[in-house]
């Protein structure tokens, strides 16, 4: 019941299965890239990850943008630096909060459902059935999900960036007394391509992680409903830990120079 022990145990679990996860990822890409491809499956997953995650990601983004503006205002007005708010909002959203929050939300929504679906397929022998029908589960189940995660999360994050900035704009214009045009101009004044780009790269990495962990935990699940339940939890927890770790590493890569 010790919260630190829980975090520690989750971290250990990830490290423990790191080798397995790595091999799983290699298999998924190595076999998946050589085809045959299943465009229907890829499309289905892209819609599921991209389209159906829009509400939850959009909601997260708009409130985050609003809170960012409000928080920076209450802090920055103490030394007359309110004019930095648009920059703060857009940089925080594109570089950090957009990808991380979208990644975590999608991990909860999509990663869990992938683990549950593939885990159920495992325990009801549907994965075995696939193999006997001359269909490689890695190509049919795992690869489409991983590709969809990799492609759709950057798109989601792009949308989240826009909505987040809009949240900041709403707050600033209607509550904090900014001019609507002035705010937009200031938003783009210090924004660099690299800021957006690094966020999109992060998003791609996170999307890959979410789908990979969902598939992996489902694929290795054992023993009925309980095993599938455990796989779902593990998928979300391990994806979240990996997202936070990868976030640091990508940030280091982009901005340490």
């Amino acid at each position: 019941m010790n919260p630190l022990a829980t975090v520690g145990r989750a971290t250990l679990t990830v490290c423990d299965s790191a080798g397995g996860i790595f091999l799983f990822a290699l298999q998924a890409l190595g076999r998946g890239l050589r085809g045959p491809f299943y465009p229907r499956q890829i499309l289905r997953q892209m819609i599921d990850i991209g389209y159906y995650s829009l509400p939850v990601v959009g909601l997260t983004a708009i409130f985050t943008g609003m809170v960012l503006a409000l928080q920076s205002y209450t802090g920055f007005s103490r030394f007359e630096a309110q004019s930095a708010i648009p920059t703060i909002v857009v940089l925080s959203m594109t570089r950090e909060l957009g990808p991380v929050l979208a990644g975590l939300m999608v991990a909860g929504r999509v990663g869990a459902s992938m683990a549950a679906e593939i885990g159920t397929m495992r325990v009801t022998e549907q994965i075995d059935a696939l193999s006997t029908l001359s269909t490689d589960p890695f190509r049919y189940l795992v690869f489409p999900r991983v590709v969809a995660g990799l492609l759709m999360l950057p798109l989601l994050v792009l949308v989240a960036d826009v909505i987040g900035v809009m949240g900041g704009w709403l707050m600033s214009v209607f509550k904090l007394g900014f001019g609507p045009i002035e705010y937009v101009n200031r938003t783009f004044e210090f924004l660099e391509t690299q800021d957006v780009l690094s966020g999109l790269v992060k998003a791609g990495v996170f999307g890959f992680i979410v789908a990979l962990m969902g598939c992996f935990q489902g694929y290795v699940s054992r023993g009925g409903a309980q095993g599938v339940g455990a796989a779902t939890t593990k998928a979300v927890v391990s994806a979240s830990i990996l997202i936070l770790t990868a976030n640091y590493m990508v940030t280091e890569l982009f901005f340490s120079r």
């Binding site: 159920t120 397929m121 009801t124 022998e125 549907q126 059935a129 696939l130 006997t132």
Partner: peptide, 11 residues
């Protein structure tokens, strides 16, 4: 061709 004991249909 294989018929699984629990049918194992793709749901």
């Amino acid at each position: 061709g294989m018929l699984f004991q629990g049918a194992a249909l793709f749901d």
